[in-house]
């Protein structure tokens, strides 16, 4: 998982590094379907925008291992344990794949990771919510991987080759995760009343944060247009969010859960579901570090990285010694 349009502009204060002319040329070629490859000469602004988006995406994959990882040891059956382990492993693979793709832009993975650990980099807001019962694992698969797919499928056509190719592979696995999540919930919904209550509780907590995964409304989106012109954003946040809601409401009905939005209603004229107001204050609070789990998530990753330092040093030392022998 998961790209999210966070729309803070790291270039806002940068001096213009290349001429407008070069940027315009590339935008024109991209609009004609040109796919940019690492060897291509690219304007600094394009490169930096890609680095920001792709590294945020990579960070989201690796931080995203934690909320579900929280339930691996407690998974209720061996089959579910196996599915969950494999899923979390997939997310690590996505992270690795995306870090490698980002490295083609001339940044090192260690430097990017350091940005994450020092709180300088952002990642998807969704992973700053806690997983409180087993049904959360299913709801994350169903809604969070579901929203991720919605976000990412257009990116399989994005203008940067390595990113587009990474997305093709990743989307395949995300849709697998989504079906497994739905299946988990479907099973629980045929179980005891307590289990059904668990599912509803999880849906109540994850629905709105899942909608926030698509980023701010188009009217508040700082450089949505810019990203569109660069060919690294194909659809607007609001378009994607609406598609997600339209697809998800019938699935909720199939499951037999209630989505926690009294204003959710089919609109004949628009041929879309209307929905209630998203709490954007909460979104910005969580994105900027004050969500329920921000400190814990980064804290866990930081501790692991620090505790692993002697291991990485030993591996280096051994490699050097072996070379000398």
């Amino acid at each position: 998982m998961y790209t999210q349009s966070l729309d803070t502009d790291p270039l806002a204060n940068d001096p213009k590094e290349v001429s407008d002319k070069r940027e315009l040329e590339l935008k024109k070629r991209i609009s004609e379907g040109y796919v940019v490859e690492p060897r291509d000469d690219m304007p600094e602004r394009y490169r930096k925008t890609l680095i920001r988006q792709m590294s945020q995406h990579a960070h989201s994959e690796v931080v995203g291992m934690l909320p579900e990882g929280n339930w691996i040891l407690r998974a209720p059956t061996l089959k579910r344990k196996s599915i969950l382990l494999a899923k979390v492993q997939d997310e690590a693979g996505h992270g690795l794949y995306l870090y490698s793709a980002t490295e083609t832009l001339g940044v090192s993975r260690d430097a990017l990771y350091e940005d994450l650990l020092q709180g300088r980099a952002k990642y998807s807001s969704i992973f700053n919510y806690p997983t409180l019962n087993w049904a959360d694992v299913g709801v994350i698969g169903w809604l969070v991987d579901g929203a991720a797919i919605m976000n990412q499928i257009p990116l399989t056509q994005c203008s940067y080759g390595p990113y587009a190719r990474a997305m093709v592979r990743i989307c395949k696995e995300e849709s697998f995760h989504q079906r497994q999540g739905f299946d988990l919930l479907n099973e629980m919904m045929q179980g005891t009343q307590k289990q059904k209550d668990m599912v509803q509780d999880a849906v109540d907590r994850w629905w709105w944060p899942a909608l926030m995964m698509f980023g701010p409304e188009d009217s508040d989106s700082i450089h949505s247009e810019e990203s569109k012109a660069w060919g690294i954003k194909k659809k607007t946040n609001d378009e994607l969010r609406q598609t997600f809601i339209d697809v998800t409401v019938p699935q909720a009905e199939t499951l037999g859960v209630t989505l926690p939005d009294p204003q959710l209603k089919w609109n004949e004229t628009r041929e879309h579901y209307d929905f209630g107001k998203i709490d954007w204050n909460e979104f910005w609070r969580v994105v900027s570090g004050s969500g329920p789990c921000n400190k814990d998530r980064i804290g866990v990753k930081k501790k692991a990285w620090e505790e692993g330092a002697w291991v990485r040093e030993a591996a280096m030392a051994h490699a050097m010694k072996s070379k000398g022998r």
Binding site: G69, S82, L85, V88, Q89, Y99, K303, G308
Partner: peptide, 26 residues
């Protein structure tokens, strides 16, 4: 082995240890 999931010394090792955990579970 699953306890290492998400906190191994490197991302590559995270994947490798999870693989082992999955094999053993199988």
């Amino acid at each position: 082995m699953s306890q290492w999931c998400g906190i191994a010394p490197t991302l590559e090792e995270d994947i490798a240890l999870t693989n082992v955990a999955l094999d053993l579970l199988g």
